[in-house]
Design a protein around this nucleic acid. Structure first.
Lengths: 208, 208
DNA sequence: TCCAGGCTAGATCGATCCATCTAGTCATGA
DNA sequence: TCATGACTAGATGGATCGATCTAGCCTGGA
């Protein structure tokens, strides 16, 4: 194994076992849901020993799921912020986000949907703590969208409404594409969502 | 088997135990997902004896789920067709569908989401037969929307794309509202989706 | 050199899962 | 009246669930 008596600043840091658990959780929950994923299966996928799971997450499955949700929230939020930074218009940014999602789906044989949506439909009604974790992740994504819109002159209310609309369209289109095992629903939505965003942006431009 | 020299038209009909099982399945799957729902719990909710479950659905949970999905598909599809029949414009119909969904969520403390979406995220990657059942239900809903749009002069391609867009927005908005335990996301989407539909309808009117 | 503790490793527990099986009830029609 | 089969009823099996627990490894610091 890792015989590193490292002098390293990361010596007593989150061993990468912990990170592997979180990433395996995110990966499995997004494909099979929360209840559909067993912890045994999860530790095997993470190449982590069973005992480590309860070492890092004493509260068990729910705590791990909350962490995976938080992790996914930050990860995708950053990607979306990058999409806005690398494009010239909000519409362009949204389109790139949709197309990126289509690639993720195709590349995973339509398995890798949204981990937060999967968790929400699975346990939002059952586990209040996890419901809040999901709500927090969605809120983070909404914020990244609102930020992007505001940077192009949108006022707060309009940006919030448009962000909800865009996020809903993405989440829903992912579900449809997974069921259909085809990128068609996602791709069909893309130009329509983009048109709505472009139109809104034009409005901000005029009134701003 | 089909020994129906029946005096009674309902002689060999689904006893209502079967229907109760299907409805309980639809209800529980939509709130807790497929994997998150136990058959024991389900039979209790349906006031059905355990043995009846495997009498009516010899292939067990998956067969019951497929039937529940089909049932939900037809049930909601009819509701949507009614929405088009009772309104004057496609935009109005879509708005009424969104608002009806908001009422369902509020009335169930944000438990009753979409049963088909829940099934999709839970087992679309695992059980091909159930994935197809989900795809079929979504296809039925898309058809009911396409029909409604076509009745107002939309051409086939435009109607299909718009239907995908509308259905995705509904499904996604439901997820967001469930996570937030608030009708806000759904209500924020409504006017934006309606605007897109109204705009498309105006286009059909001009070109038609 | 030796200790403390972060971490690994897996045995094991009771609960619950889905499915099967047997036995019994009841209505129907010959 | 009696046989048939649809349906009810629940005990039971075998697998798997999440969680707990003990034992031991390994490393960095005393």
């Amino acid at each position: 194994m890792g015989a590193n008596h490292l002098t390293h600043p990361f010596a007593m840091n989150p061993s990468d076992t912990r990170l592997r658990l979180v990433r395996a959780a995110e990966q499995l929950f997004r494909t099979q849901g929360y209840s559909g994923t067993g912890l045994k299966e999860l530790t095997v996928a993470a190449h982590a020993p069973w005992g480590s799971l309860y070492h890092f997450f004493p509260d068990g499955k729910a705590e791990l799921a909350a962490e995976a949700t938080r992790w996914a929230g930050e990860f995708y939020g950053q990607g979306w912020r990058r999409a806005f930074a690398q494009t010239k218009s909000p519409g362009e940014a949204i389109e790139s986000i949709f197309l990126a999602e289509a690639r993720i789906l195709e590349g995973s044989d339509y398995r890798n949907g949204c981990p937060v949506a999967a968790m929400t439909l699975d346990i939002a009604s059952t586990d209040e703590r996890l419901r809040q974790a999901c709500a927090g992740a969605f809120r983070g994504w909404l914020d990244s969208l609102v930020e992007g819109f505001a940077a192009h002159g949108a006022d707060a209310d309009a940006a919030e409404a448009l962000a909800n609309f865009v996020l809903a369209a993405i989440e829903g289109a992912i579900v449809l594409s997974r069921a259909a095992k085809s990128p068609a629903p996602l791709l069909a939505c893309t130009p329509l969502v983009r048109a709505a965003v472009d139109q809104a942006a034009e409005e901000w431009w005029k009134t701003g």
